[in-house]
Design a protein around this nucleic acid. Structure first.
Lengths: 224, 224
DNA sequence: ATAAATTTTAAGAGTAATTTCAGCTTTATT
DNA sequence: AATAAAGCTGAAATTACTCTTAAAATTTAT
């Protein structure tokens, strides 16, 4: 379970991250709006906890933008103001829940769980594309009853591609998400893994293909 | 980050351009209102710094005109007069920020950053022209339900033409934007890509045509 | 410590993107 | 109408990106 926390009050962000960790997830913290948007864009998170008042760019703008870009990660908004008008606005532009500060830890957990449940994108939920289903619990990919176990890089690569279905995932993004921001991995590392993954999909006789857009990145397609 | 500076006081324009360059951007300087409007029309800039008093055509007129033409590049207005009336007028006709001369460099930077952030330039938004829509996420152009994927140069070319809808995009600009400032690509390279793109639009039976203005450049037009 | 699995590296083959070029078409000018 | 200049387009040539594979290096598990 990977949660993105966009919140400029460090202490609060830290507390929320701890809560998430205690229940077995991981959290990335971002302290300003600009970086917040950047992180939120990648669909790798299971949920986003989003403060309204932020330096750089406010929560509404971030939410608006990512929804416009068809990123549908569930969003839990936090706000100090409890005006009905704001609440309505937030929900209208695609927030999944609106929590007014201050709040109890229990309430926060409950909300987060609720929105994770609703979107059924929790950690242990199987994600699917075409005839493939990918099980986070076992790192196995299944197609028509047969399964193959993926190693962790193969798994993350396929997960990233499925979460961004219908979109090209840039090589840059893949490298930074899977190998890490500061890694010196080259395109060739990624190419090798694409090749490994293709072979496994082939072994399963899947109809899903990993397609390349030269100079840009990869995307999944279902063959007819 | 590309900024257009429309300001007739050369020294000031130069200083602002330097500030922008120091923070990693590039700036084009234009010294009079008429050319200012011409440049501002192309939507390729991330922001415009616009002086009010200019030879040829004043800042208000330029702003008025480009907003009328649906160019929504963020605009930071500079003025010597600090009358509330002017300020209100500027903001009403679509300025994003109003800065009174003289101002501190820090203040200028802050304002510019603020307006850049606010609009966030929408890099990932789907853009449209006529019956075409172009999706940055998938590099696909869609027309009446059918889609074709474009390779990276075709995509960039179409994107540039759509962003500059209703304006002629000079061959020079296209070459420098897509092939790079220092590339030795010739007009014929561009012609070849125009040809590729036309073929794909034809395959989609789009009503959009890529028209040429001899010796100048290309623009999009919707056939009737 | 050894074996097994994973990850990286490297090189050659394969393929799509890009450039080049020649011949043709269109437009402008006299 | 003739001529020149500019643009278009299809085919061939070239370039650069990607794929695949095998082997080396590293990490993890036993």
């Amino acid at each position: 379970m990977k949660i993105l926390i966009i919140e400029d009050t460090k202490s609060l962000a830290k507390t929320l991250a701890d809560i998430i960790q205690e229940s077995g997830g991981t959290a990335d913290i971002v302290l300003d709006g600009i970086s917040g948007l950047e992180y939120a864009r990648s669909s790798i998170y299971d949920a986003i906890v989003l403060d309204v008042m932020l330096p750089g760019m406010d929560g509404f703008q971030i939410l608006n933008q990512i929804r416009k870009e068809k990123v549908n990660t569930p969003v839990l908004m936090l706000t100090a103001k409890s005006e009905v008008k704001d609440r309505v606005h937030g929900l209208n532009i695609g927030a999944d829940y609106y929590l007014t500060k201050p709040f109890e830890i229990a309430e926060f957990s409950a909300c987060l769980n609720a929105i994770l449940r609703r979107k059924d994108s929790g950690v242990n939920d199987v994600i699917q594309f075409g005839d493939l289903s990918l099980s986070p619990a076992s790192h196995e990919v299944t197609c028509c009853g047969r399964s193959i176990r993926l190693n962790s890089k193969e798994y993350e690569l396929l997960r990233l591609l499925i979460l961004n279905k219908n979109n090209i995932v840039s090589k840059e993004l893949i490298l930074s998400k899977i190998w890490g921001y500061d890694s010196d991995a080259t395109d060739n590392n990624l190419e090798a893994y694409v090749s490994f993954l293709r072979r496994k999909l082939h072994l399963l006789s899947s109809k899903v293909a990993i397609c390349v857009v030269r100079k840009v990145g990869y995307y999944l397609e279902e063959k007819v």
